[in-house]
């Protein structure tokens, strides 16, 4: 089919967004064993910070972008301080519920402030795109793919090759042991929240020119990113990224060849099938045993 290359390009770009958010997600699971249901709202917040800084205050695009990401790290720390820290010793369920509460709170605060009308944010480049063969390359889609690839590579380097990365890994594997080894566990966890919020915020800023900035921007991305995590393998970094790409491609192809109205259902059907057939996910290790 002549449509296929175009659809694949779209699928990969949309998948990049899911992957980027999923990455922030998986880091929190690994460092603090937290399942953050407000991850999608991180994207929303990033985009609205950008609206304030760029459209509101009229800062140059690059400066606004950097500032927005910095603000997101601060936001991430505040988020952790309110929704996670008071509940850290009470198990997973209260934290999950508290992040759900946070996602409702954030979305509706924005709704009350900005109303339901979407806002406009420009992309990184002025041109809308160009044709390669018969595939139209949207410039924003391209920048999303490129930035995702670069960030994933950077993160791999940081995690595997630097001391900070190793400390983070140690924290995720055994918090008590890490503390005994003199690793500042608390700082590590808050740091992960900050980084995760920055990643999510960046994803929001990148997707803003495509989807426009509205309250709903976070919800669907967040849920799909979560699905990406489970399909790829819970807590697995390569799994989260591949899961994101897989969902992006499957739902785009599914919409084109099966059904447009059920487009958003494909990710969840896939999710349930994966859980039934291969609960550890495509890239996951066996579900960890603990006693």
């Amino acid at each position: 089919m002549s449509m296929l290359p175009q659809l694949l390009f779209t699928g990969v770009s949309i998948g990049s967004i899911y992957a980027l958010v999923a990455l922030g997600f998986v880091l929190l699971i690994r460092s603090a064993n937290i399942v953050n249901f407000a991850q999608g709202e991180f994207s929303m917040m990033g985009a609205y910070f950008m609206v304030i800084l760029f459209a509101g205050l009229g800062l140059p695009y690059a400066l606004a972008l950097v500032l927005a990401v910095v603000l997101m790290t601060v936001f991430g720390v505040a988020f952790a301080w309110i929704t996670y820290w008071p509940l850290r010793d009470r198990g997973q369920v209260p934290v999950i519920i508290s992040t759900i509460g946070a996602s409702i709170l954030l979305a509706n605060l924005i709704l009350a402030t900005y109303g339901p009308s979407p806002q406009v944010l420009p992309g990184l480049f002025d041109g809308t795109g160009f044709l390669v063969g018969n595939v139209f390359m949207d410039s924003q889609y391209l920048s999303i793919i490129v930035i995702t690839v670069v960030l994933v590579a950077l993160q791999y380097l940081v995690f595997e090759k630097t001391m900070v990365g190793k400390k983070l890994q140690a924290t995720s594997q055994d918090r008590e042991m890490a503390a005994l080894l003199g690793i500042p566990v608390v700082a590590m966890i808050f740091g992960t929240f900050a980084y995760s919020a920055a990643l999510g915020g960046l994803a929001g800023i990148l997707v803003a020119p495509i989807l426009y900035v509205s309250v709903g921007i976070g919800a669907m991305i967040g849920v799909k990113a979560f699905a990406a995590n489970i399909i790829g393998g819970f807590g697995s970094i390569p799994g989260a990224i591949c899961g994101g790409f897989i969902i992006g491609i499957v739902e785009t192809l599914g919409a084109a060849y099966i059904s447009v109205p059920y487009k958003d259902a494909f990710a969840f059907v896939m999710l349930i099938v994966v859980l039934l057939v291969r609960p550890q996910g495509l890239f996951g290790e066996r579900i960890a045993e603990k006693a």
């Binding site: 509940l87 954030l106 979305a107």
Partner: peptide, 21 residues
């Protein structure tokens, strides 16, 4: 509270988890 009342729901959920589990 007009439009903000759903935000209050969200805030209430967090507060309940923290102060009134």
């Amino acid at each position: 509270l007009r439009q903000a009342y759903l935000a209050v729901y969200g805030g209430a959920v967090i507060a309940i988890m923290i102060f009134m589990p």
